[in-house]
Amino acid sequence: MEDLESILKQHPFLEDLQPEQVKLIVGCAKNLRFKPGEFLAREGQKEACLSLIRRGTVAIETHAPNGETMCIETLMPGDVLGLSWITPATAHFDCRARETVIAFSLDHGCLVGKMKEDPAFGYAITSRLLDNTYQRLSRLRLQKLDVYR
């Protein structure tokens, strides 16, 4: 049976981390399961963890006053959820499990503490978060252009 460390390092977000850096993350990680329809994050609430999706699809959604729910993007295994975690901001969207979702949940306080203690580890995590943020921003820019209209 694989242990948490060996499963963690298979996630694309943690790819190429040094073994001792993966060990640092193990202490902050929990393996969570979400049922279909369950929310991983809610608009307006502080995101206390960074989720590394292992299995299932998560819909990033918002809703209009008439009750209509709009999906902005779907996140897949290998994706990271909770990027607002890097700022004091609260979540801007609801994140709902479309099917059973399995994810590593990295505790904010624990991870930030280790990032501060170990600048090389902090840099490794921050650069990955920035890369994810940039990729997400690029996709949203293209989406905003509404090119198919």
């Binding site: 959604e61 729910t69 709009m70 999906c71 779907t74 897949m76 996709r139 198919y148």
Partner: peptide, 17 residues
């Protein structure tokens, strides 16, 4: 698709993804 309601079970996002 770039955007959807909740009755679409496929991928949502841009084609470059």
């Amino acid at each position: 698709v770039d955007r959807s309601g909740t009755d679409w079970y496929g991928r949502v996002g841009v084609v470059t993804r």
